[in-house]
Write a protein that binds this DNA or RNA. Structure first.
Length: 287
DNA sequence: TGCGTTGTTTCACC
DNA sequence: CGGTGAAACAACGC
């Protein structure tokens, strides 16, 4: 489920492995992925050079020569793979199908074949993702329509006072507020659970009831969760079960397992309409 | 087989 | 206008 860490991992792979390469051929097996695209096909990318790979919130932006930018959203189940002519492979995003299995596979919908022989495969088991091709000059306006808040991590990421201001106006659960991309951009269901556990805040606490004294810890928790996710190249969650690496994730996808901090049994509840994992001892409901 | 799944949008309503 | 809550939607695997 590509959230910020998965998308950032993909961005880094594309940047390191494909920038400055030229597109020889593009295959689109599932044209509906382009149904909201200003330019309805990817044909204009043929013979162009990949110039840069950028990210805003969970959106990946690939800039090509001749001022064309491809915006991609991977939604729930997008997976991106780069395979070089010598067989070296780099994969990130959704862990299903098996990233080390055959490519292309049943849910591989788009292929970019570069003149070097490297291939970029985009797969999407759920087919919820989308591609939008547009001139570079229209990217800023297209991004503005999403009303994204400040980035959750990185340079220019949200400040403590910005976070405080934004939470003060919300009475809905802190978890739902943090998932709102107009409040801050990048958190999804996995990492928000991790951030709140780290900060010892119950996920159903009204956002404006989180004490100011807890906000520095919350911001640290957000950064910790996302940085850890990026460091691992994304978390592996399959059918609501986590496959932790070095103990991360600590709670998400781990119902019934002991909390790594206190040993209490991790519970799963619903907050808003979201499956939510937390430790009832570390994150007590506010009395 | 109907349910669960998530990011996002839309809608009615206060 | 802005916040809220609920519903809808995309499509698939179990």
């Amino acid at each position: 489920m590509p959230e910020l860490p998965e998308v950032e991992t993909i961005r880094r792979i594309v940047e390191q492995e494909l920038v400055s390469q030229s597109v020889a051929e593009v295959l689109v097996r599932l044209p509906k992925l382009l149904r909201t695209s200003p330019i309805p096909t990817l044909e204009p990318l043929i013979d162009q050079t990949l110039v840069a790979a950028r990210r805003r919130a969970k959106i990946l932006l690939l800039d090509f020569s001749a001022d064309q930018t491809l915006m991609m959203h991977l939604k729930l189940a997008g997976q991106v793979a780069v395979v070089h002519a010598d067989g070296r492979r780099f994969v990130a995003g959704h862990p299903v199908p098996d990233p080390s299995g055959p490519l292309p596979h049943k849910s591989t919908h788009v292929e970019f074949r570069f003149s070097s022989g490297s291939i970029l495969y985009v797969s999407d088991l759920r087919q919820f993702g989308w591609f939008r091709l547009m001139p570079l000059c229209e990217v800023e306006r297209a991004l503005a329509e999403f009303n994204f808040g400040p980035e959750a991590v990185g340079t220019d990421s949200i400040s403590l006072s910005q976070l405080q201001d934004r939470l003060a106006r919300r009475s809905i659960p802190i978890k739902i507020t943090l998932l709102d991309q107009s409040v801050l951009a990048g958190l999804g269901n996995i990492y928000v659970d991790e951030a709140l556990h780290r900060a010892k805040i119950h996920p159903a606490t009204p956002a404006n009831s989180v004490p100011a004294s807890a906000l520095p810890g919350l911001l640290d928790g957000i950064h910790w969760a996302l940085d850890e996710g990026i460091a691992q190249g994304g978390a592996k969650i399959v059918h609501n079960k986590a496959y932790p690496v070095n103990g991360f994730p600590e709670v998400h996808g781990r119902r019934g397992e002991p909390c790594p901090v206190c040993g209490a049994v991790i519970e799963k509840i619903r907050v808003g309409a979201r499956g939510t994992y937390f430790c009832p001892t570390c994150q007590p409901a506010k009395s």
